[in-house]
Write a protein that binds this DNA or RNA. Structure first.
Length: 727
DNA sequence: AGCACGCCGACT
DNA sequence: GTCGGCGTGCTC
């Protein structure tokens, strides 16, 4: 560069794009940047936000070199965060720019929040006093500045009263700094009364927080044991040390109810962070987190990429929840990345769950993670009495799916005026439709799964890719009329079944395809809690969170569902789901019952559920994984297929699950809708495999490619990278 | 990821 | 004759 060039230096900048390394930009004379600075740079035809990166600027053709447009006036992305971005990038095999993109996903947050106009008493008097004016003046008398609407609201008057006073010079306008999203939590607001059990657990977590330094604790407590109250104490301890806290929740658990519990303890709600936060709020939260003014964020997995200034604790609630896995763009499990982030930052992390994942359980057993156990439910929340119903001995009547034993209990519950829950994790009416005349089965034309009948809507729906068609009168194959028959039950069909046995009972079906969306669902849940239904029939949506005080019977229609689908996590998932569902009963102090309809009552999952002995289940599961060669924790395998080949990819994923025991987690990515044409070889896909034994994986990939359709593409294998090997 | 360029099928 | 589908390539 010539001596009088306006650009003195060049700097590496990570741009939000899948480039393998930072791009190089010229730094205009007089501009001051350092690693971490958030900058605006030209990229192709547009301007984007990037992060000035560490290390030397790469050498780039001087004609390509473009200048940094602007350094944003916002806190730089700190050193720990930059190391975190690098680590996640390496671990997930994603370009660092794509990880940076997740950090910078608050488009307008990089410029300082504008000051807002406010009002303050000037000392002048109004021409004439009215009741409304008196109230306003009394409120404003403290000498503080108010926003126009804030003051109106506080005084209980309309804002035109304020305008009137302002016009008479009673108020003067002053500019106010941006308000915090929420006020600082008060750790002494309502100190929880803990049981001795909870106290012990809380003290242990608080000790970790006060000692500082990296430490993972698995907080393992049965449903209803008060895990939240316990980890709130750890949150309080971190706050008292002046540190920020992140509470990660599965998106679905980020409810009003949770925020309220936090408020009951700390006097204010935590800041929220999730995918449909309004843009304005997004910006404010991002910025205030970076400045360190926001102390607690409760967020979905993406909150892990917020640029905290002084993070001192992460809590991962429901750590086993599959919602922590992001399965597009950058593939990661937020629970594991939280552990990594805590390690980089040198602070503790709490993983909480009533049904920990097998890998966390193993980590705790092997001493990598500390374990804090809450064994007892508190107060009157007794555990329900759980039993299996052997469907071979007590089969349902023809055309029904409910065993006489379950129906009998439902009848008793109904007589007592209490509520029953029937759980079946399958939406729609019937999972398979076939023609009695020719045997034709209705399959999805897009992917390879069966079409599920939705009788209320009169449609056949693919639950895999979303394909929908009208249910025909005649068989499309042989043309025979009225010979189509539904096989197997979905919740709609169970509702029909229930109606036949209990015609007068008020029944309600809850599944994710309920008309009216989230709002309607919330109303229905409230109605049920109030006692407006006798029998609730629901999919896994009823398993989470909600408490129904009058629910004394939970019947699992098909406890075996999900055990035989070839997924290595099938048993674990079923165990977790059934634990949650049966936990819906017995929170009342009333005698309650859980009944599991199963054809394999001797199965370890059923045994573990009815005995309440989860250790039994984990021991069996870990032994089973050792026997089959599936690693007990940490290692994950992923198959990533770029659009538009999801359906074929599902086939590969199934093969991967069956053939590669090390594939404990399998990701498939790609838009579902596009029709696929793998066979013509015009598409490309990418297969990424994380695993333990290189030779096994390579052997598997070779076998898969030899067996599969003609695929040209890029294959990368990376081995031996689980969070543990990092620690 | 976004965006422009470029090549083959159905239509104002 | 164009409009528009998506496959390909590029961004410091």
């Amino acid at each position: 560069m010539s001596k009088d060039s306006p650009f003195l230096t060049a700097a590496p900048v990570l741009v939000p794009m899948p480039a393998e390394r930072a791009y190089t930009y010229a730094v205009p004379q007089g501009m001051c940047v350092a690693p971490g600075s958030v900058v605006r740079v030209p990229l192709g035809p547009r301007l984007v936000a990037g992060i000035v990166w560490d290390g030397e600027a790469g050498s780039v053709d001087a004609r390509k070199l473009r200048p940094i447009e602007q350094v944003f006036d916002c806190p730089p992305i700190n050193h720990d965060m930059r190391r975190f971005i690098d680590w996640v990038s390496q671990y997930t095999l994603s370009p660092p720019g794509m990880v940076a993109r997740m950090v910078l996903r608050a488009p307008e947050a990089f410029d300082p929040e504008p000051w807002t106009p406010g009002l303050r008493l000037s000392g002048g008097q109004p021409d004439r006093m009215t009741g409304a004016r008196e109230r306003v003046l009394a409120i404003a008398a403290g000498g503080l500045s108010w926003t126009r609407s804030g003051l109106a609201h506080a005084a209980g008057v309309s804002s035109s009263v304020i305008d009137g006073l302002k016009a008479q010079g009673v108020f003067e306008t002053v500019m106010m700094p941006p308000l915090p999203v929420v006020a600082a939590p008060d750790t002494t607001y309502a100190v929880a009364e803990l049981t001795p059990d909870q106290r012990l657990a809380a003290d242990e977590l608080c000790a970790c927080v006060r000692a500082g330094g990296f430490k993972v604790s698995l907080l393992d407590g049965v449903t209803g044991s008060g895990k939240t109250e316990v980890y709130f104490e750890a949150v309080a301890a971190a706050l008292e040390q002046g540190r920020q806290v992140l509470i990660l929740l599965p998106e679905i658990a980020l409810t009003h109810a949770f925020l309220e519990r936090f408020q009951n303890r700390f006097g204010v709600k935590p800041a929220e962070w999730h995918s449909d936060l309004p843009p304005r709020m997004r910006e404010r939260v991002w910025r205030q987190v970076a400045q360190g003014t926001l102390k607690v964020v409760a967020g979905a997995r993406s909150a892990l990429f917020l640029p905290f200034d002084n993070l001192g604790l992460i809590v991962v609630d429901e750590e086993h929840d599959p919602a922590y896995k992001q399965e597009d763009r950058v593939f990661y499990n937020a629970r594991d990345m939280a552990v990594v982030r805590a390690h980089i930052g040198g602070f503790p992390v709490v993983l909480a769950s009533a049904t920990p994942s097998v890998e966390s359980q193993v980590n705790a057993q092997q001493g990598r993670y500390g374990r804090v156990v809450l064994s007892a439910r508190f107060a009157d929340a007794a555990l329900p009495n759980l039993r299996t119903i052997d469907m071979r001995r007590a089969p349902p009547a023809k055309g029904s799916f409910l065993s006489p034993l379950l129906l009998q209990e439902m009848g008793r519950v109904l007589e007592r005026g209490e509520q029953s829950l029937l759980f079946l994790n399958r939406r729609g009416y019937a999972p398979l439709t076939l023609c009695r005349s020719c045997g034709h089965r209705f399959g999805c034309p897009v992917c390879s799964s069966w079409l599920v009948e939705h009788r209320f809507r009169g449609q056949l729906v693919c639950h895999h890719c979303g394909h929908t068609e009208k249910k025909p009168e005649a068989c499309p194959d042989c043309g025979t009329l009225d010979h189509l028959v539904a096989c197997g039950p979905g919740v709609e069909r169970i509702a029909e079944d229930v109606k036949e046995h209990f015609p007068d009972a008020r029944t309600i079906v809850l599944s994710s395809d309920i008309a009216g969306g989230v709002r309607r669902l919330r109303l229905e849940l409230e109605a049920i809690a109030k006692g407006d239904a006798d029998i609730v029939i629901g999919t896994q949506l009823v398993a989470k969170g909600h408490n129904f005080p009058n629910m004394t019977l939970v019947g699992v229609v098909d406890a075996d569902l999900g055990l035989a689908n070839g997924d290595p996590r099938a048993a674990e998932r079923t165990f977790q789901l059934l634990s949650q569902v049966t936990g819906r009963a017995g929170r009342t102090g009333k005698k309650s019952l859980g009944l599991l309809q199963t054809y394999q009552p001797e199965h370890p999952v059923m045994q573990a559920i009815i005995s309440g002995d989860s250790e039994l289940f984990y021991a069996r599961e870990i032994a089973e994984r050792e026997r089959t060669g599936l690693p007990p924790f940490g290692r994950l395998a992923g198959i990533i297929v770029s659009a538009p080949m999801r359906a074929e990819a599902q086939g590969h994923a199934r093969a991967l699950r069956l053939n590669a025991p090390e594939a404990s987690d399998i990701f498939v990515l790609g838009p579902a809708e596009a029709p696929l044409s793998l066979l013509n070889g015009r598409h490309r896909f990418r297969l990424l495999v994380h695993g333990e034994r290189r030779s096994d994986l390579q052997g598997f990939i070779k076998a898969m490619l030899a067996a599969g359709p003609k695929v040209r593409g890029q294959i990368r294998v990376q081995v031996d990278i689980d969070p543990q090997s990092f620690l």
